[in-house]
Design a binder for these strands. Structure first.
Lengths: 258, 258
DNA sequence: TTGTAGCCATTGTCCAGTCAATGCGGCCAA
DNA sequence: TTGGCCGCATTGACTGGACAATGGCTACAA
């Protein structure tokens, strides 16, 4: 380990550790050497070692647990399948097997629900075709698995559609909010999903108890009725280290064309 | 700005800057104060200012351009629509409008193609149901827009299906590799998409010229024939700051159930 | 006008140190 | 045995400094 290979020292140290993690000589959950040990081993100052570690933390490869040391991160994703709301059972044997493989079997789910009437955020207002000043009902849910927060799901509905309905009550709706909306005469037949990948905001970091180096998927689904009226926008924040998002697709039947 | 609000100083400084960016008083492209200016303004050492800036860089909010200073990052995502390969024209007017809004109009696309015969990575081998030792053909593509790398797309095919076919030639296939596969008797009718969100590997960072604080989506699509035989795995790496991924969904026709 | 050498503001890298915070483990008392 | 206190190893926060690297700008030369 020297300066001739002209990467900065902290890069070289990070690379060395990353290689050990990739190769498996440092397994998930394993403890890294302490900062002091690495300082002596590489002959640099502690701050330089810390910079190398900070790099890996930001890459999501390791976590620090003061004062125990640094550890290789463990991962165990669970499936998020947006299509499930329109189709409980997968079409294909492939998807069936996939969902089974990643199921959260044996883990204990829980959710907290909160309902409010608010002015919609700009992106929601736009997708619901609302004039400025029109209000929305929002059902905010935080979902937990084994006591750990797993994702945030906020569903927005135009207030004039759902006022006084079951949707306004902060309880679990067994048959689903979509079904309630359908009973009110607004059955969704199509949805448009958008997925953005970015680093979390500080608020998201806090609400989801995210470690540094954990990106999130920002999933925004807009549900439309047969007539094309948007009646629901659902925003889900999915921490990258706890989820796989999956879709199944099928080739169109030729007669499908306009 | 003081220590009483017990967040560390570098957090407070980062928060102050983040607020200015959120509120828009620092617009995309704007130059931040220099480190020396902030050191004086907040009465801390330069290293502490740098730690605050490093935070924002890792959040993807700012970039540093030595020696010009730090700047608020610009974003301009384009649409990635996996369903396009089975369905050129969107179903719904909503998706149509969405694709139009984010189109890459006026920008100049280019791609580099490379073909090789390799042992498949473990995740590919598993999805193609290959025994260990079986080889695959891989078409590696890097797509550019206006000279900037935009995404990486590697498509894997079981070698025994595509040997000597057009797929092995490192040129653009106008009608698509899927069509060639169909002509060979392996028409894909279903696909299973998985999306993972994570920080890029150093290799991806290099190939896509990613700045720090840019997460990626790892999109892995497995195409199946009518009989359920997997014939293609496509892996796409999508930098989070340059893409929106979108899907459209439709409620099933009731008779669809098994 | 064009090229170029060098100045310089700015960020990048690194050091050697101080003091604070944290949580585990062991010691001791009830 | 149990419970609480405390020491200690370890990471976190921060300082004030040094020198390197970079790229734009200016002034001067061709």
């Amino acid at each position: 380990m020297n300066r001739l290979g002209r990467d900065p020292m902290y890069q070289q140290i990070a690379d060395a550790l990353r290689a050990q993690i990739d190769v498996g000589s440092l397994e998930p959950g394993a403890k890294l050497p302490t900062e002091a040990e690495m300082r002596d081993k590489y002959g640099v100052s502690r701050e330089t070692v810390r910079k190398a570690l900070a790099l890996l933390v930001n890459e999501g490869l390791i976590v620090s647990a003061r004062p125990q040391g640094h550890f290789v991160r463990r991962r165990q994703p669970m499936v998020f399948r947006p299509q499930a709301e329109f189709r409980k059972r997968p079409w294909s044997p492939e998807m069936d097997a996939f969902v089974t493989e990643y199921s959260a079997e044996g883990r204990e789910p829980r959710q907290e629900i909160e309902v409010a009437i608010v002015e919609p955020p700009a992106d929601v207002a736009k997708r619901l075709h609302l004039e400025s000043g029109e209000l929305v009902a929002v059902r905010k849910r935080v979902r937990y698995l084994d006591g750990e927060p797993f994702n945030i799901n906020d569903s927005y509905f135009p207030l004039n559609l759902v006022r006084d309905s079951e949707i306004m009550r902060p309880e679990d709706i067994g048959r689903g909010a979509n079904e309630v909306l359908a009973e009110l005469g607004y059955r969704q037949v199509r949805a448009l999903d958008e997925l953005y990948v970015r680093m979390p905001t500080p608020d998201e970091t806090h609400r989801l108890d995210l470690g540094p180096g954990t990106p999130v998927a920002y999933h925004i689904a807009t549900g439309h009725t047969e007539e094309g009226k948007p009646v629901r926008v659902a925003i889900t924040i999915l921490p990258g280290d706890r989820h796989v998002i999956s879709y199944e697709r099928r080739r169109e039947i030729p007669s499908e064309e306009a």
